[in-house]
Design a protein around this nucleic acid. Sequence first.
DNA 1: ACCTGAACACCGTTCAAGT
DNA 2: ACCTGAACACCGTTCAAGT
Lengths: 203, 203
Amino acid sequence: MREKKYHHGDLKNALIEAGIKILSEEGTGGLTLRKVAKLAGVSHSAPYAHFADKQSLIAAISTEGFKRLYAELDAAILANADNPRRQLMEGARAYVQFAMNNIGAFKVMFSSALEKEKDYPSFVEISHKTFERVVDIVKACQAAGALRPAPPEVMAVAVWGQLHGIISLILEGQISHTVLDKFNVWEIVSISVEQVLSSGAPA
Amino acid sequence: MREKKYHHGDLKNALIEAGIKILSEEGTGGLTLRKVAKLAGVSHSAPYAHFADKQSLIAAISTEGFKRLYAELDAAILANADNPRRQLMEGARAYVQFAMNNIGAFKVMFSSALEKEKDYPSFVEISHKTFERVVDIVKACQAAGALRPAPPEVMAVAVWGQLHGIISLILEGQISHTVLDKFNVWEIVSISVEQVLSSGAPA
DNA sequence: ACCTGAACACCGTTCAAGT
DNA sequence: ACCTGAACACCGTTCAAGT
């Protein structure tokens, strides 16, 4: 039987996992290629066999994060196939939960850490695919008279933006504790979503 | 008459301005203390006479950015003192304009570049003061029946979050060009704000 | 094909020293 | 009080070399 010929059969994924772990423990600022390599048990130059540069690793981590987010969003939609309002509500809950359970990954995914998204097609693809799911929910809600009949894409940006903005402002410490002591993230988000839904046709 | 005794009378502010300039030209990734020092015409260690570390400089830049944003927001409010709906609309416009005209500063202000906001009281102060202005607008709108009677702070987070999220998603390249080709940032934002206003008491 | 180790340019930070 | 220059540890990236 052969020794572990090259440490892993799959160093590429090991590096992505190592990156996610460092991110969750030390935040965006703590992510260095050399630390990732060390945690994966290889030399500091080994990553370059799998990633062109640090940006590429970040793109891979962000893409992986988006895939997980997409999966949870999709599950929330499927579980409420017959109820558009609940799709929006539970989709929002999935988004909030993902952010709270993956703060490190969430921050890189939406920080400008990735400077030229265009250069990473699979990142762009999953990111756009996620947006399409939001558009789907919006259209279903509009068809059910739960959201106003504005252009669905604009409505989707507004809805996603609201979710995203609330979470971001809180995560970045921009919201004072006098507010956060009284309401938790989900309370704020759910009130906001209800507010959007109430602007549709009369219930 | 004396020579310029120490390069500037006010190296501290010169460093902040240099930082803002680099940010606008090279983005968050290009901001290094050594480049800032060079641009200000001093040695790489001179900044340490005025800032404890890089985080401190970032805090100072962010604080300055917030002050400018606050000023524009305030102007928009004062110019529409008698009309809460217009305060919200024009406040949103001011926010969007600030972001578009100061992309570099805007990104640092709201990126996790500043890792321990708590340690910078004047940053926390202006940031909270800005939030208070949003709360003011929300309260005025609620009093005028233009926004639903949810807790004003929650409503303020929702409204600010929506604005902020839309801008962030667009700035981070998360919104596909098939959408952005049809609608510009302000169109999306204004439709969103109108949507929020429409959820208030019947016009 | 996959990985190592030396090397280079650059960065943040410290510190003794100069005015 | 305000600034310089040398020094140190750390980083991203490259490259010749090893299996």
